[in-house]
Nucleic acid binder design. Sequence first.
DNA 1: TTGTAGGCGTTATCAC
DNA 2: GTGATAACGCCTACAA
Lengths: 338, 338
Amino acid sequence: MAEGLPQHALSRPVTMADVAAHAGVSVSTVSRVISAARPVAEPLRDAVLGAAAELGYQVNLVGRALRKGRTATVGLLVPDLDNPFFSSLAQHLSTAFEGSAADVLVFSTCGDLRVERRGVEAFLGRQVDAVVMIPCHESESVDSVRLAAHSALTIQLDRQVVGADVHFVGCDNAAGLGLITTHIREHVDVDDKPVLYVGAKTLSSSGHERFQQFTQNFPDRPTYLGDFDFAWGQQAVDEILSDGHTRGTIVAAADIIGLGVIAGLHVRGYRVPDDFRVIGFDGIGVARFAHPTLTTVRQPVEEIGQTVLDLVSLPRSTTPSRSVRIAPDLILGDSSPG
Amino acid sequence: MAEGLPQHALSRPVTMADVAAHAGVSVSTVSRVISAARPVAEPLRDAVLGAAAELGYQVNLVGRALRKGRTATVGLLVPDLDNPFFSSLAQHLSTAFEGSAADVLVFSTCGDLRVERRGVEAFLGRQVDAVVMIPCHESESVDSVRLAAHSALTIQLDRQVVGADVHFVGCDNAAGLGLITTHIREHVDVDDKPVLYVGAKTLSSSGHERFQQFTQNFPDRPTYLGDFDFAWGQQAVDEILSDGHTRGTIVAAADIIGLGVIAGLHVRGYRVPDDFRVIGFDGIGVARFAHPTLTTVRQPVEEIGQTVLDLVSLPRSTTPSRSVRIAPDLILGDSSPG
DNA sequence: TTGTAGGCGTTATCAC
DNA sequence: GTGATAACGCCTACAA
């Protein structure tokens, strides 16, 4: 903080000293009224509140933070707010903290390790009480995660880095693939529509886990690995078709990939679910926008937010790092009907 | 800040005094090295940097902020991170500030006026250098906007409240509707496909402006007003059909509504663009996920981010409140081909 | 119950 | 070029 931007000084900001003078009491009395730390006699209290209102006093949280060593702030680091799943996670974490005394502030790392590092330093420097982060990269983000965990309560969200013993809250990816597997076993003729996997290069633990569980549940089935985005889904279709597959059940590692797959199939003249079934993962809202709507494993974002709140609110005596996996559920769409 | 959350004290944090002692210099020298404010002799500089690295010193921005009265922070208030357009705006604002000395911190107001107020107080209390906000409500957010503008450089984004003379950066909605109008005049037989408008109740200035411009460009054409979401788009289709329209050119006030319209039309067995053309507004990424892809007026989010950066970086001598409108462009999709 | 005083970590002013 | 010192705004012993 504190450099690079011009100052916007209008009039000198009102401090507790101003309020105290105006109300004819001491600053400590003002402090006790404002922070409601200790009881203050009715008349004095009214005088203070009156003076504060009259002068337009707003507490300076920087002063308070310096004194108390805490900030009632949770910093959330997200790789990309333009990614519907990440922004949904950010929104639901904010909602979960709405009733708490702490404010959630979000910083986008723009998928860049250096920006991620800057974000961690930004939050630590601002003395946040907790850092919640979706690491950019499964291995290369380890330094940022360690740095955060060294001086603040830190929780990894959705993805976890290898080699850092730090709290984690995320989806039970194995269970999610279990739901997909059961769905396929019960509703799909895999002789007619053999199973294929379109995933992402395993730069994130989630991608990694889903891929591993897929290969375990469906050994020897073809897998296609690219990026975690729409364009890769479209491109994967070309690879699948040029490999000679004309019918199948495509399991996508993320909804955004699945939506690309559906779009790509349509461009090439194939029908969903008649020629290919498609199943996604994450449960992003826009899965409904697809035509047909996407069958997907929904991550319980509300529950994930709540779990982070619980973890942050816990007395820090429970130091041993916890890994909480939350069970997802299957949302049936028309891309793979039940 | 500073209450409600348990403290996470590991070991006493390292301060400049610790570094100074370890390096055998004064705190002033450490400060000068760390903040690069003034030149320091080579050997001392190295000693300080060495000591800082050895002790793992991290600057405490709260102390700095208290002293300097500035924080190198821009606070962004967004109504809903789950809304693809808002989160895209947040992402691009973050990107625009990547090269700047200031950090962008995002707070979601959850579309709630009280949370919005809390967010403004959270940012002002933390002494942010600038507040950038997408107001929740065209009229009811005025107090929050005024409060912010009273003590910090404040910029309204995308929407502006009535009755507050505060900077504004957003899309030229009239020009956007001009693009739509020209497109329709040049490529659509409006006798075969008469024009209809599906908008949102005018709680936001953007919705308001688009609606007004539509009625001006297409007088006496039917308009349907609901919410700014997918469900309303779907529902609007039912109203349109029950009014007896079986063909038409539907102008939606936002992509998210347009996507709902496409979905609704499909459910009812109508084809796009054969029976109905659909045109959206905003240019959200997921417009590509629709089938057919959505023709839309794209807001230049990169340029909007850059403009906010410029406005924040400007010396505050240019006090008169500015209103910057950025021209959008038309993106042709298959829902209304060119 | 209220007031006084000291200090949180940093930077700016002033001497040297 | 460097060091001592005084704030910035707030909270909290401690004293009254």
